[in-house]
């Protein structure tokens, strides 16, 4: 579902406050993207670039934010101490705060849940619902 924002700059400031990250610190070296195991497209560095350009709506509506597995490789390797994983989680939360879960709980099925690892269910609910 699309998030529509009237004031991109204000939304980016809110994102920075929520995540505790300073988006302008990123100098686009691309180490986060190089190490991303999720092959995100748009990549972590491109998402941050969009935010640096003020294109909040484009960043927040990028499907790739849901591919992030929060493995923290990007955050660990960033030479500027930016956490792309935190920024991506901040973008996800904007959707979730609007009551738009990314997974349909009814479609998961009892059998799938019964065989799932509990920590996957709990963290999956945290990240997608």
């Amino acid at each position: 579902m699309q998030i529509n924002t009237e004031n991109n700059q204000a939304a980016i400031r809110d994102l920075e406050i929520a995540t505790g990250e300073t988006i302008s610190d990123c100098y686009q070296c691309g180490k986060c993207t190089a190490g991303c195991p999720a092959s995100m497209d748009p990549s972590p560095s491109l998402l941050i670039h969009l935010l640096k350009l003020g294109l909040f709506t484009k960043a927040v509506n990028s499907a790739s934010i849901w591919d992030c597995m929060a493995c923290l490789t990007c955050s660990e390797r960033c030479p500027k101490n930016v956490s792309p994983a935190a920024i991506i989680e901040g973008l996800k939360r904007i959707h979730l705060n609007n009551m738009e879960p990314e997974i349909n709980l009814n479609s998961l099925g009892q059998e799938f849940l019964a065989h799932s690892t509990q920590q996957a269910v709990v963290s999956g609910f945290r990240k997608f619902v």
Binding site: P37, A38, D67, M69, S123, F128
Partner: peptide, 12 residues
């Protein structure tokens, strides 16, 4: 140290 995919098992 590569990621196994973790909780993405719930979605993909």
């Amino acid at each position: 140290v590569d990621c196994c995919g973790a909780y993405l098992i719930m979605r993909n």
